[in-house]
């Protein structure tokens, strides 16, 4: 579904990714773990088009998307819930969700009706968002904002979803809820690429995992295989 081949990318003169390759099969959850500065977030940004890969290929559902603007890639079916959530703070919850489906809604009239079913689905998944649908997103708590970010990504009915550090800065109880949602989405057949600091928890939901080191994939394997790797256990899983 998603294929990254030998991608080099970075910011300005500093290259962060030095030939990253990974693959996400349809209906699976793939985890990407590694130390700070290893290039996990940069990988996500290079996939979704927020930065342009200097070299290498990115294929979404067989179609090359490397170098396209992020908005085009989003409309081709890739949703990215970015690090730090990045909800639109001055818009209300429901407007945030509607914008999630921007690519397939009419621009002027009747967009609410066309999005009704998807709204219901997201509200079903996160009842808290329904309660707060008229509230400005900036006034939500961190946990609610994370749910909104995931819900907003779901509104696009994506082929692949990228989740960047969905647990960052969240209370344990909320982290559990986030992971429950990820499991539920997985059960529904959603394809996901997940970057996560809580490597242990990430390996529990993932079908396959990659470990990054200094801009490259250092180790890969199924969670069961990775758990057997002593070195990895010591370095990342604590």
């Amino acid at each position: 579904m998603l294929l990254v081949e030998d991608v080099y990318a970075g910011y300005g003169l500093s290259e962060v990714l030095l030939g990253t390759s990974l693959a996400v099969k349809p209906g699976t959850v793939v985890a990407l773990i590694g130390a700070n500065g290893a290039g996990k977030t940069t990988t996500m940004r290079a996939i979704s088009g927020l930065i342009r890969p200097a070299r290498g290929r990115v294929l979404l559902d067989g179609e090359p998307v490397g170098g396209l603007p992020a908005s085009r890639i989003a409309r081709l079916g890739l949703a990215h819930a970015p690090e730090g959530r990045k909800v639109f703070g001055t818009l209300c919850v429901e407007d945030n969700l509607l914008l999630g489906a921007y690519g397939r809604l009419p621009r002027f009239f009747g967009f609410r009706g066309r999005a009704a079913a998807d709204l219901e689905r997201v509200y079903g998944l996160f009842p808290r968002l329904r309660e707060r649908r008229r509230q400005l997103a900036g006034t939500l708590s961190g946990g609610e904002q994370q749910m909104l970010a995931i819900g907003r990504a779901l509104m696009a009915r994506p082929k692949v979803m990228l989740l960047d550090e969905p647990s960052m800065g969240l209370a344990p109880v909320i982290v559990q809820e986030v992971f429950r949602t990820i499991r539920q989405l997985k059960a529904e057949g959603m394809t996901m690429l997940l970057v996560e600091q809580f490597a242990k928890t990430a390996l529990e939901v993932a079908d396959y995992a990659y470990v990054m080191e200094r801009g490259r994939i250092a180790i890969e394997g199924t969670p069961a295989e990775l758990r057997r790797d002593e070195r990895l256990l010591a370095a990342y899983l604590g």
Partner: peptide, 15 residues
Amino acid sequence: VGDAALPAPPAGARI
């Protein structure tokens, strides 16, 4: 706390 430490789901298809 038990919820976060659910047993790992069966490993998916290897890629």
